[in-house]
């Protein structure tokens, strides 16, 4: 099928996409790396002397960096736990025969389509607000002291909100994977006397392993960049209690106008994301051969 002419035509057709993506990736990346070695603050225009590793040194030794790394790991880890375990549960449940399947699935999946700023604000104000929120109301009417979620448990509150948004994603993918499981295999195991526990552990879970890995990796890529949810709920506070790496870089570059420092942080974020990306790419690449 591929003659010489069609091959050169193919190259012509693919080149706009390749050039655009190459430009989109390389130009800003080189600029970030370049800026990270300059003493460059937008509030002091004109002078951008070479700074060596200074920006990296100050960024990494700043106490808020340590907090940001801890918070990023806690957020990613916490949300992954909730969504993966919850997603497996929901997928197993939704896979069972029931009435009104369509309606129930839609209700479970719906949060995924809600934009981050809306879900964060709705949870913060209508549910978690200690005075007017539903949780506060519920606590008061049961005779408990209402909890000020964002004051007392800011990190857990954000983990909760973001988990609500990503649980449908995990459920949807795990459900799709579960539906490709051979039912006869399960029935054969049942006839041989395998209980639900061993059927889940030895048949369903191995079948889901691949999908679970994909869910974890893709979510990690997105969760490393949580931003809007923090911006509209806590602004990274109280103190640095909910500042993740993304938010810390946003603060130093766009609020403190320190281009050099923000860029150094950016380079660190890129390295961290790449560690995850390598594993994800390997998974997807394997599937491409099949």
């Amino acid at each position: 099928m591929s003659t010489k002419a069609s091959r050169s035509a193919a190259r012509m057709m693919i080149s706009p996409a390749v050039l655009l993506l190459l430009g989109w990736m390389l130009i800003p990346l080189c600029m970030t790396v370049y800026f990270s070695f300059l003493r460059y603050n937008l509030l002091q225009p004109g002078t951008t002397p070479f700074a060596g590793w200074e920006n990296y040194y100050w960024f990494v030794t700043d106490p808020s960096f340590k907090a940001a790394i801890t918070n990023t790991l806690a957020m990613v880890g916490g949300i992954l736990c909730v969504t993966t375990i919850g997603g497996i549960g929901f997928a197993l449940l939704l896979d069972k025969p029931m009435f009104a399947t369509g309606l129930i699935r839609i209700m479970v999946i719906a949060p995924f389509f809600v934009m981050p700023t809306v879900s964060a604000l709705v949870w913060k104000n209508m549910f978690m607000n200690p005075v007017n929120g539903i949780f506060g109301n519920l606590a008061t009417s049961l005779g408990f002291q209402p909890i000020d979620f964002f004051g007392q448990y800011p990190l857990a509150s954000i983990i909760f909100i973001v988990s609500w948004m990503w649980l449908p994603f995990a459920t949807l993918i795990l459900l799709t994977a579960l539906q490709s499981l051979d039912q006869e295999q399960l029935e054969a195991a049942e006839m041989d006397g395998a209980g639900w526990g061993s059927r889940f552990w030895f048949i369903m879970l191995p079948h889901l392993a691949r999908a679970i890995t994909v869910v974890i990796l893709i979510q990690t890529i997105f969760l490393l960049s949580i931003f809007a949810e923090i911006l509209v709920t806590t602004n990274g506070g109280p103190g640095t209690a909910t500042t993740n790496l993304t938010y810390l870089i946003y603060v130093s570059s766009l609020l403190q106008f320190d281009v050099g420092m923000g860029s150094a942080g950016g380079v660190i974020a890129i390295i961290l994301a790449n560690i995850v990306a390598i594993f994800l790419m390997r998974m997807i690449g394997k599937n491409l051969d099949a």
């Binding site: 390749v18 960049s225 790496l245 993304t246 950016g266 790419m281």
Partner: peptide, 15 residues
Amino acid sequence: MLSTKMLPPVGVLVP
């Protein structure tokens, strides 16, 4: 092409 998607947006925010 997929790998360009893995670039964290905050890494190129400044430029």
